[in-house]
């Protein structure tokens, strides 16, 4: 099937989601959404000014962005927005939902994953976070679907991120 996956990045006010959006847009279509239109426009302009051939697009509706996407990326803020989750839940079935969590202690990682998997029972939820105690700038990936976790590991590696599967 077409290897050019489309990514929806929901919430672009955090540095990790901005970084991912920029890197992915070099090769794959990226659909950007944020409740804050100013932030959204700023990030969109940044991406285009840094990479003129970037395949980024502003979306005004998270449902349509997620419906069109093959992979949904949720920033920390987006993942705690119950209203947004409700809007995208039905169109996320069968898709990878990547949750970019902030730095945290690796001891507590499972509770967030379980919580998010509960919100998206028919999606392949993958959690990504930096360790608060490990300072080698490596990211950790965790999820119930091994193939989905591997897909995200491949994605991260391809854009120069160091990542480990938990």
């Amino acid at each position: 099937m077409s290897n050019r996956r489309t990514f929806a990045v929901l919430g672009v006010s955090e540095s990790n989601s901005i970084f991912l959006a920029k890197q992915i847009a070099k090769t794959n279509p990226v659909l950007l959404f944020d409740h804050d239109a100013v932030v959204l426009n700023t990030v969109y302009s940044q991406i285009l000014s840094e990479y003129s051939n970037a395949k980024a697009e502003i979306m005004i509706c998270p449902t349509n962005a997620s419906w069109e996407a093959d992979v949904i990326i949720l920033s920390n803020a987006a993942a705690t927005d119950g209203n947004l989750i409700e809007k995208i839940r039905n169109v996320a079935t069968g898709k990878i939902v990547l949750f970019l969590e902030n730095k945290k202690n690796t001891i507590n990682f499972e509770s967030t994953l379980d919580k998010l998997q509960h919100f998206f029972p028919f999606s392949k939820v993958v959690q990504s976070f930096e360790s608060a105690v490990d300072y080698n700038n490596s990211l950790f990936l965790n999820g119930n679907d091994k193939e989905a976790v591997k897909t995200i590991l491949t994605l991260f590696t391809s854009i120069g991120l160091k990542a480990n599967i938990l």
Binding site: N64, W67, E68, D70, V91, T93, G94, K95
Partner: peptide, 9 residues
Amino acid sequence: KTFFIPKKL
């Protein structure tokens, strides 16, 4: 419903 991936093209 839980087995189908909704996709807009």
